[in-house]
Computed example of a mutant assay.
Amino acid sequence: MALDDPKTLVSTDWLAAHLRDPDLRILDASWFMPGSDRDAKAGYAGAHIPGARFFDIDEISDTRSPLPHMAPPPEKFISRMRAMGVGDGHQVVIYDQTGVFSAPRVWWLFRLMGKTDVAVLDGGLPKWQAEGREIEDLPPYVRDRHITVQRQAGLVRDVTQVAHASKLRDHEIVDARGHARFTGEQAEPRPGLRAGHIPNSKNLPFGELQNADGTMKSPEEIRAAFEAAGVDLGKPVITSCGSGISAAILALGLEMIGHRAWSLYDGSWAEWGMYNDLKVATGEA
């Protein structure tokens, strides 16, 4: 896969060259961990890539669920995208204020809704600004745009499906959290959750797929990282993490290496760690 693939990952050079394309839509999908002193909306208001709209991951979600930012019903996604002027025929590029952290979550959400002309900006806003590229602090002019969706149920897994996969071992479950959280040595940042991991899952911290500057590693390096984590790429893969954000980084990596049989556990550890009737493993995988 070439770096500039408008269905997965594009460079800052690619975005700069296409910035004025009439059918390009740019989304700032920044999100920060609970307890962080960073405010994603304030960051967007202060500086964003020209024309970018802010995608609020917590609001554009299933707010009826007790779990954080679960995927919204298609009707809500349609409503929010129309209001943001994002619709059929658009090439969407998603970035975040960290580098590549929360943007892949929204890339996955578009994929879940059947939209494939969507890419993550490699290196995100930090790389864009480090290169001295144009930014603005004005809200974009937005016109309502029709959008159709077709939910791709195969790209998401619920707790029952993950429990079956854990027991049968017919999928690889890969956890993107840091190693100490995976082994249970570090407490979870969300109160009330047990520490540890899903039985028979593997650990591949999302940072292992990234370079020091926050860009994604090459497909060859990403494949090697999955293999080094003991992941059998001959099996379908379910990605997981704390609340379904960084799991999407692993999903993006799988797509980059051409491994199409992947899905994301939307509830992730925020759900699994909450239910005492679900088994929890600790220590090494």
Rank of each mutant, 00 (worst) to 15 (best):
D58C: 02
E131I: 03
I26G: 07
R25S: 13
L3F: 07
M113S: 03
E271Y: 10
T282Q: 14
W269T: 07
G192Q: 12
Q97N: 15
F226N: 04
V86L: 05
R25P: 08
D62I: 01
Q97M: 01
R64T: 15
A40V: 06
P189D: 00
I57M: 03
A270E: 09
D277I: 01
A228W: 07
R151F: 11
G85Q: 08
D56K: 01
Y141P: 00
G123S: 05
P219A: 03
L209E: 10
K279N: 09
R25H: 10
K76Y: 04
R53A: 13
I147N: 03
D5N: 14
A103P: 07
V149G: 07
D175R: 09
M256L: 15
M274Y: 12
L168S: 15
A153D: 13
G184S: 08
R169F: 00
L112F: 05
F101A: 07
K127F: 00
V162I: 08
D175V: 03
Q161F: 09
Q150D: 15
A47W: 00
A45D: 15
L193Q: 12
A29Y: 04
I57G: 00
A130N: 12
I147H: 07
E271W: 03
R169E: 14
A130F: 00
S11N: 08
A17R: 13
D39R: 11
S166W: 04
M216A: 12
I238K: 02
Q210Y: 03
A281G: 08
G283R: 06
A42Q: 14
A248C: 15
D37L: 06
G99Y: 04
P68E: 05
G242D: 06
D170V: 04
E75H: 09
R151N: 00
P139T: 00
A29Q: 04
D56Y: 04
M274N: 14
T116F: 13
I257Q: 06
M81K: 01
W31G: 02
A228T: 12
R38D: 10
A29W: 02
I135Q: 04
